[in-house]
Nucleic acid binder design. Structure first.
Lengths: 157, 157
DNA sequence: TTGCGTGCAAAGGTTTTGCATGGCA
DNA sequence: TGCCATGCAAAACCTTTGCACGCAA
C-alpha cells in the first residue's frame, strides 16, 4: 500500500504544518482559514475541509467535536505522529470559560481499561471530552487552597 | 420564585411529553420536528429550539452535543424530574453503529470524584459522553465470550 | 388587557458538493 | 499525460433572530 496520501500539495503541507506547530491545541477550520489567509496563503474553505478529512484518514490528525456551537476541531497527533501525546490522555473542557485542559492521569487510563475489560467497550480518548467546570471557575483553586496533588496526575492547559 | 416557566402552551406540553415518553433516548430537534408534524401538530423549528432552551433552564431536560454532525440532542431528566436517572451515570457512544449505552458504574463515579478532588475539575456527567467502539462492533461480545461482569456495573442501551 | 409564545421568513455559521481549472507525478 | 487537488460558488444543514400576530393568565 503506497496510499501515502495522494499528491503533495502546497495547501496540504501548510495545513499539516500549522497543526504540527500547535500539537497541544484544538484548531477549528475557521482558525486555519484565518491564519493561512493572514500568512499570505488564502485557501478555500472546501480545500481545508477536504484536506483535514484526508489527514484524518491517514491518521495524522484527529477530529474532535467539542465546540458548543457545532464546529469541529482538529489536532495534530495520530498513530504515525511522534510528537502528539494527546491520544494518551483525556481532555477536560470547562463549560464556563471554555478552556481546554489536558489530563495525564493513570487513574483515567485505568478506567478506560476497566470499561474495556468489563463492558467490552473500547473508549477512544482522542474523541472523548469531559465537560464540567474548572477549578478557576468554581473558585476553588487547588494549590491556592493549600493542598497539592500527590497523585500520578499531571495536567496542563 | 414562581419562575415555573411562563405560560403553559400546547407546544410546550407536547415537546415535554415526547421527551418524557422516551427518557432513555437522546432526541434531536429534527426528530421532534418530524414526530410532532406526523402526529398532526406541526410546529415551527424556532419554537422547538426556544422551548428546549427554556426547558433546559428549568432543569427538566438536558442538552447534549454528541451528534457527529454538530446537531444537539436533548433528554428528559433534570433535577426536578424523578424518572430521569441519567444524570447519575455516564454515556458511551459507539462511533461505528451509533448506539448509545447508559453505564451505571461506581468505578466511573469514583473517577469523577477523583478528578474533582485532585484536579479541582467538576465533571458534569450529563454533558459528558465517552466515544469509542462497542462490544458488538468490535466482535468481542462479552457474555457470548464466556465471562460475565462481576463488577458493580450495569449497562443498558 | 398584558405580555409571553408562536409562526414565518430571513439571516447566521459550519460543512458539503459540483464543476471547471490547475498542478503533481 | 492522467489524475488528483484546488477554487469558486452554490447548496445543504443546523440554529438563531426579527417581527407581527395569537393566546394564556
Amino acid at each position: 500500500m503506497q496510499r501515502k496520501g495522494g499528491y503533495q500539495t502546497k495547501q496540504k503541507t501548510l495545513i499539516l504544518s500549522y497543526l504540527e506547530t500547535h500539537p497541544d491545541r484544538h484548531i477549528t477550520a475557521a482558525e486555519l482559514l484565518h491564519v493561512l489567509t493572514e500568512n499570505g496563503t488564502p485557501m478555500g474553505a472546501a480545500t481545508i475541509y477536504r484536506q483535514l478529512e484526508k489527514l484524518e484518514q491517514e491518521g495524522l490528525v484527529r477530529r474532535y467535536s467539542l465546540d458548543d456551537r457545532g464546529s469541529a476541531c482538529w489536532q495534530y497527533g495520530g498513530a504515525e505522529a511522534k510528537a502528539g501525546t494527546c491520544h494518551l490522555h483525556f481532555h477536560l473542557k470547562c463549560t464556563e470559560c471554555g478552556s481546554l485542559i489536558h489530563l495525564d492521569c493513570d487513574h483515567l487510563r485505568e478506567i478506560a481499561h476497566h470499561v474495556e475489560e468489563d463492558h467490552g467497550f473500547f473508549i477512544d480518548p482522542s474523541r472523548t471530552v469531559f465537560y464540567g467546570i474548572c477549578a478557576k471557575c468554581r473558585g476553588t483553586e487547588p494549590g491556592a487552597e493549600a493542598e497539592q496533588h500527590d497523585c500520578c496526575c499531571h495536567s496542563h492547559e
